[in-house]
Design a protein around this nucleic acid. Sequence first.
RNA 1: UGCCUCGUAGUGUAAUGGUAGCACAACUGACUCUGGAUCAGUUUGUCUAGGUUCGAGUCCUAGCGAGGCAGCCA
Length: 605
Amino acid sequence: MSNENPNTPAVEPNDFIRETVRQDIASGKYKVPVTRFPPEPNGYLHIGHAKSICLNFGIAREFGGQCNLRMDDTNPTKEEVEYVDSITTDVKWLIDGWADHCFGLKPAGKTPDAQTVNGKKDFFLPAIVGSHSSLVEPFYASDYFDQIYEWAVELVKRGKAYVCDLSPEETEAYRGAPDKPGKDSPFRNRSIEESLDLFTRMKNGEFPDGKRTLRSKIDMASPNIWLRDPLLYRIRHSAHHHTGDKWCIYPMYDFAHCLSDYIEGITHSICTLEFEVHRPLYDWILENLDLPRPLPHQYEFAKLIPSYTIVSKRKLIQLVNDKVVTGWDDPRMPTISGIRRRGVPASALRSFAIGVGVTKFISLTDMAVFDHAIREDLNKRALRRLAVLRPLKLTITNLFPHHYEELDAVNNPEDPGTGTRKIPFGNTLYIEHDDFMESPPPKFFRLKPGGEVRLKYAYIIKCDEVVKDASGKVVELRCTADLDSKSGGATSGRKIKGTIHWVSAQHAIDVEARLYDRLFTVPEPDAEGDFKANLNPHSLEVVTAKCEPSLVDASPDLRYQFERLGYFTLDSDSDIEPPTPSQRKLVLNRTITLKDTWAKIEKKQ
RNA sequence: UGCCUCGUAGUGUAAUGGUAGCACAACUGACUCUGGAUCAGUUUGUCUAGGUUCGAGUCCUAGCGAGGCAGCCA
């Protein structure tokens, strides 16, 4: 399957961050932009991350730069290799064929080189860009622990940092409040030598967790809380997924992030709004270390908040642990892996993630916009197939029971190059149960007693008889066909308002169709109260669908449209290589329904 | 009661002192062997009050509203 978006926008996106990048390149501040996508490996990537990925990689590709993937792994108690792997897979999938040529990775196992620049000591770890080699891997902030430690020592030597013995509770009390200045720590003015000694001993594991910290020395009275001598290092006797048990002290986000950016030569460090108040600290750290190369700068944008779902990692993990969904990649999840499994092409997700724009205004993005992006993409590429989700038997009484013919069906009217296929037709069919109503409301132009309808690619039929079982349920329709009305036939031009899909009962294959719907029933599930009270009880319905036989060859790389129903994709629960085609177990996920004007009319009536 | 940020149709997003546009949604209609797609059209907007200016969504002031910040999380 081509990963190219069939609707690549003619105009490149523009926003306040790109504006800055443009100016920085024009002024010669940087030669090319180097961005990074820095997730913490403590959960799966979701649709909100997709926006960030598209922003960072988008800037890289538009300005001839690069974008590094970096694990922001400075907290050993929360991070796992499973998440590193899923993140890497998801990023690759999302940018494949679009920005993989500016994907910055590093040689496996490589850490920064010490070098001298303009007479100053420096650490630098350049990326390998656009490599598909297996000898490259993502960057890890934890690969910089040696360098970050050295810089911490440097800050102490410059009198810009000190070891503090305050307990966590005392530290909090000393910090003050947003509208109340803090108080200096009693350890703030201890000697450089003593801090150096204590910091070394912290590193050597002489103290238990929480006993001491390394703090910057800035201003306890600052109106910005993040400038009130924020912590640089804490003690954590805990193994790390990437560095093992080498360390028992770990740098805080604020200290590690700006320096990681610097080491990789990042120019524009883009993050979400909640880090806005951290920016002065980001700058303070870099400016107080006398670094020889150009410094990175931080820019903030509003994260994506989609309606009818949640993106909080804590809540997502709860859905997984409580088995509300089958896993992180359940097609109802807003995770990138879930979206992928649902059958959404990467190009559709990108189109959405780019289309929502980049601002500093926190907004709720209507999921209908994503739905539209998916349909727009899939409409262009999906192979049309006939399938019936809820079968109703239909017998054509003026054809013999052994009647057999093959009809031509178009694979994709949006793409004539995909040609046609043959579909079998006989006197016994299945049609969609919804396509028949015994006493329909006005404007229902499908089948009704005595009414006529076109069978797609086949004949116009008339409903003569409705057969019911003992309970009164309709179990069969007996119809006569206008035998001259076959597509291309003598009376094929007759105007019939309705056209319905069907499959030949004798030739149809059974498929497990998983019909997914949105996971929540309200636009903002976690606005108030327990978000799980807003779960949609009908978010998954499983039916055995009757499909045209060509689907035995269904491929996970292709997308299908079941005509008049929706878009489907092969799920990984299917057999890929069965002993014989007829033994193949097929599971299809409904990616999204087609737009349904009738449902809207029906609702109004 | 501190600091920072943000307010443009229902939703999201443009307009960089010069005709408020686009997308989604909604609604009409055309076309249709997918009630899909496509095409044409309609409805709805600059938070408020002052000021600067020939001219303000844009600049200034004040107000109102929303959000963020007091993890040894990121």
